[in-house]
Design a protein around this nucleic acid. Structure first.
Lengths: 162, 162
DNA sequence: CTATTGTGTCAACAAAGCTGCCATAAATAT
DNA sequence: ATATTTATGGCAGCTTTGTTGACACAATAG
């Protein structure tokens, strides 16, 4: 497959902008397909996946830490989080310094399940990276980061570079 | 901002894969923010946006055309489409050859509204393109296309190159 | 002591997926 | 010509996951 490279600044024309918008839509649509299928078998949804993912990535995070990362409301989160705690995927430990906080950790069961979900996306992304090559991957990162809200970029950077 | 370029094939390591997965999540999260805000004012949601967008892009498409593009069920689509027709954003015309079909078109009202939604995403993407430069944009497209399901890539290509 | 913060819970509601069943039009088979 | 099958599209009802707002309580900060 030959790569399409935009000439001069024509890449800012309507056609090229539509291309990015549409690819983002289609890629995201398929990106969530594999984990969604696994989640459905356990009676979970995409929201559970996000919580498992970010708790796995940031062990010991608090509820408000997750809220500001996911940008959803407390109630949405607490419903999903409650289920994951009830079913033993996540454990809450009272904060040592601030005892109001519940620090969140994956249990072994949670770790195993998260890994299973992650692997499907890992394979998909690894495959895409392989086909596209390292230069393309750098561009992919760069554009995505700049699509993020300007005042969120620092937070996202510190998350992804952890 | 200096661009992070992966060295050799280290870009296939876990860290680099997580970076792609997380950027995709955060970028998509913010990518939908502006149109969501406008839609909410009119009592619509993201699903309405997708229908408006793809009908605008593919005037005269049929319901089943939209279904296979969006990969949702008939019912999901028909609720949203029904509202858009009722409120005069979309008009249905009976197909000339196959009179079972309803061909879909944006009305003037629909065109205006779609343009308003599109402009917010256009600005966001144009800005990201500008910051990242044409080479990065090419990589962005390439990786996204390869994240799409392999057996969907032809369909996506024919959509985005229209 | 008082104010603020972190967390949790309840109720009610909305958006947008899903499955199942059914209606109609058109095409096809007998 | 009639009967059956297929394509298309609609309605009812359920589920997930987002929303707002009110409120309670414990713990920390000023």
């Amino acid at each position: 497959m030959q790569r399409k490279v935009p000439q001069s600044n024509l890449y800012l024309r309507e056609e090229e902008l539509r291309r990015g918008i549409e690819l983002l839509y289609f890629a995201y649509r398929d990106f969530t397909r594999d984990p969604d299928a696994i989640l459905a078998q356990s009676g979970f949804g995409r929201a559970h996946h996000r919580v498992l993912y970010f708790v796995g990535r940031n062990p010991g995070t608090t509820v408000s830490g997750l809220l500001s990362l996911l940008r959803i409301t407390k109630q949405s989160l607490s419903r999903v989080l409650g289920q994951l705690v009830d079913e033993d995927y996540i454990i809450q430990k009272t904060g040592a310094e601030d005892r109001r906080q519940r620090l969140l950790y994956l249990t072994d069961k949670g770790l195993t399940f998260e890994k299973q979900l992650f692997d499907t996306q890992r394979n998909r992304v690894a495959d895409a990276y392989k086909r596209a090559g390292p230069e393309a991957v750098a561009g992919f990162w760069e554009v995505l980061l700049n699509i993020v809200d300007e005042d969120e970029r620092a937070a996202v950077l510190s998350q992804i570079e952890k």
